[in-house]
Computed example of a mutant assay.
Amino acid sequence: MQYHMPSRLYFGPGQIQELSTLITAKNPVLVTDKGVVKAGLAAPVLDQLGKMPVFDSIEANPKSDTINKIAGELRQQKPDLVIGLGGGSPLDAGKALALLATNPGNIQDYEGKEKYAVDPLPFVAIPTTCGTGSEVTWVAVITDVDRRFKMSIKGPKLYPTVSIVDPDLIATLPAPMIAATGLDALTHAVEAYLAKPATLITDTHAVKAVGLILGSIEKAFADIRNNARHREDLMYGSMVAGLAFGNADVTAVHCISESIGALYDIPHGVANAMFLPHVLDYNLPVCTRKMAALARTTGIDAVSDDQAAKMFIQKIKDLSKALQIPTFRDLDIGSDQFPLIADMSFKNNSNASNPRDLGQADYRNILEAALGA
């Protein structure tokens, strides 16, 4: 059993104000998105570290052509540090750009595990949503626009050098973003617990994360600004979920969500929330005991494991509805697209980690179930 997480991690309200004591780079760059800048969240970074190049063109489901364009500019500027500020998209983009700043070619050349010849630049991760987990993982997910496929770029040198997780940064997060990113974090935790590569260490993190997220997300959704304790618990749960899946894996939920995200640009957290209960339904026959364990840690009192597990799945369905997550039907994706989505999901690197074997026909059945829900 092995566990690896080399990032220096700083967690707590107000932690962003300590940034200047943690960063000594002479020529940093900031990677973010326009929404983060507009919300004023880049100001604490720039106020403390001074003027620096800001790349704020990162979109949801960051695109390979965006990454490659920025990489060309970075190679001319020769920074010594990349700072990622935002949700999963800017953080993953920051990792990819830290890699391309020291290595030639395009990001498509580095799909897979440890394809870089030169160590990436040091990377600082500052999440501003409660769902990414990218601040404690070694993976960057980038959409290859030519293939309409989400690539995973992996390597131990892609772990952030420093991660600053400050719950105050999500105090102004809109309710729909709390719902989507919070349920994304819940998906990370549940999938890590059920994945084939799960270990005792990742299970401990996953169970802790599930409890934190389910215990805080509804109060945070209702009023995150004035609910400091639940805001902190939700951010902590998101981070701990990252510690879990970063050393275990995700499962079929991500296989599907990454496929429809690449094809239709659906926000990642929304897609995960849509499909989590339907994949749990599929996996129930081989995961009854572990699902029941999760159910009981969240206060579900049932005599049989089967009943507890089914009540846990229903709890997630009810929660998604309460948090106003759209249904798969709302996306208006025709069933004629299911063979393509199923094929892409089957080819996803995490398919083998699902606790129950899935073929293309199984993915099509899950899509049909989600469409009819």
Rank of each mutant, 00 (worst) to 15 (best):
M1L: 10
Q2N: 14
S7V: 04
R8T: 12
R8M: 12
L9K: 06
I23H: 05
I23M: 05
A25E: 09
N27C: 04
L30M: 08
L30K: 05
V31C: 05
V36L: 08
V37F: 08
K38A: 15
A39W: 07
A39S: 12
A42Q: 09
A42R: 00
P44H: 13
P44F: 14
V45N: 03
L46V: 11
D47M: 07
Q48D: 03
Q48S: 15
G50T: 02
M52G: 04
F55L: 04
D56S: 15
D56K: 13
I58H: 08
E59F: 12
E59G: 10
N61I: 11
P62A: 11
S64H: 05
I67H: 04
K69C: 12
L74I: 04
R75Y: 13
R75H: 10
K78M: 08
K78I: 01
D80S: 10
L81Y: 09
G84V: 05
G86E: 06
S89V: 06
P90C: 13
L91R: 01
A93Q: 04
L97P: 00
L97G: 01
L97I: 01
A98S: 15
L100R: 08
G105P: 01
K113V: 13
E114V: 03
V118S: 13
D119K: 15
P120E: 03
P127R: 03
G131N: 06
T132N: 05
S134M: 07
T137L: 10
V139I: 09
T143V: 15
D144G: 09
D146R: 12
D146W: 07
F149E: 11
K154F: 12
I164G: 08
P167I: 00
D168S: 11
T172R: 08
A179F: 05
T181E: 04
L183D: 00
H188I: 06
E191V: 02
E191N: 06
P197F: 11
V210A: 02
S216P: 00
E218A: 11
A220E: 01
A222Y: 09
D223L: 11
R225C: 09
N226S: 11
N226W: 05
R229H: 12
E232I: 00
D233K: 05
G237K: 00
G242M: 11
A244D: 02
N247T: 05
C255H: 05
C255A: 15
S259V: 10
S259K: 09
I260A: 06
G261T: 01
A262E: 04
Y264F: 15
I266H: 02
P267R: 07
H268K: 05
H268C: 09
G269K: 02
A273C: 07
Y282G: 01
L284P: 00
R289D: 08
M291S: 04
R296N: 01
T297V: 10
V303P: 00
Q307D: 14
Q307K: 14
A309V: 03
M311H: 09
K317W: 11
S320L: 02
S320T: 10
L323Y: 10
L323Q: 07
Q324R: 12
Q324A: 14
F328S: 03
D332T: 03
D336Q: 13
Q337H: 14
L340T: 11
N349R: 09
A352P: 00
Y363V: 01
N365R: 15
L367Q: 03
E368V: 04
A373S: 14
A373H: 14
